[in-house]
Design a protein around this nucleic acid. Structure first.
Lengths: 172, 172
DNA sequence: ATAAATATTCAATGTTGTTAAGTATATCAT
DNA sequence: ATGATATACTTAACAACATTGAATATTTAT
């Protein structure tokens, strides 16, 4: 990731003021996403955690749900295919971070729950990640934090909406 | 990814105002990173592009550099190991998106350059990605875009600084 | 010339991604 | 009830990448 593309002109709006291009934001988001995932991947790879990104995000969702969660729901929430998820849950199971049961009524459904060990690991990882991100976020002022959070949540909600629509669209 | 963790209290600051927690931002960045990379992965996977994320980010860096780039520099810039990169560049080479040469003076070094085909593909992918992200960003006002860009670039620069320090620290 | 340092590739292994096919259970129509 | 269809998930086969450590090639130092 080299220097940002700065060779494009800013937009000229009707009122004559100059505003940044949307593509600048896209570049920033892409770059931050790539770098932060890389950085996080290395953290998860340490012996004390020994996890992969897909495993973490799957476990994180189960932790947030607390109650048993269908495989298909977990797959949709984490944007992973059911086939991939089977192997991922297999490995979480080996480490005793989750438990797999069958739904009582509909025995086709496989339900997964996080174990206390799983929740405890998530807490440790969140703490380690917090320390890691402190370096990138620590210098932000309280005002900036509020603003950034508001904008990021706006972006995130739009993304989630798109994904939901995208899923229904895919099966249409 | 389920509903955001909202069960943590906001920070109470000295002046009595309530401000969002840094951890909220961390959550948002993690979630956006994961989702946007997933979404982008699916886009790159379409037949017209037929690329993977590591391939794209490697090619993107070469595109931004324009001039030939050492394997080790590319590895550092994209945060990939030299060993991984060899295979990735192999596949870019097969698709004729890059060319590999030896450095004239120091023939240990392998130099990689993007081809015109490679640059053209990057442009097409950027366009497709732009349309994809329009859905998540299109509703932002001009003010918000400026603000968000400023904050994201701040975060990005901090991350880059950390990575540089982290690299020198790792080999020390 | 020999040794040491550097840059990259190769080989072996594990996780995740894909698609397609397979198995088990549930539901619906007759 | 029985047979067809749909649903939920797993399995299988293969490609892409991640890791590590060994091997190779080239340069630099003695």
């Amino acid at each position: 990731m080299g220097a940002p593309d700065r060779d494009e002109d800013p937009q000229i709006t009707l009122d004559g003021t100059q505003h940044a291009d949307l593509e600048e934001i896209e570049r920033a988001i892409m770059q931050i996403s790539w770098l932060s995932q890389r950085q996080f991947m290395q953290l998860l790879d340490e012996e004390r955690f020994n996890m992969t990104l897909p495993q973490f995000y799957s476990l994180l969702h189960l932790h947030q749900m607390r109650d048993p969660c269908k495989m298909s729901d977990l797959a949709e929430a984490t944007q992973q295919s059911a086939a991939s998820l089977t192997g991922i849950v297999d490995r979480l199971l080996e480490k005793q971070l989750v438990e797999r049961t069958r739904h009582v009524r509909d025995r086709r459904q496989v339900m997964v729950v996080v174990t206390p060990q799983g929740s405890s690991l998530i807490a440790k990882i969140k703490q380690a990640r917090h320390e890691q991100m402190q370096a990138a976020l620590g210098h932000l002022g309280a005002e900036d934090i509020d603003t950034l959070l508001r904008l990021l949540d706006q972006v995130l909600l739009s993304m989630l909406r798109v994904l939901e629509r995208g899923d229904t669209h895919r099966w249409a």
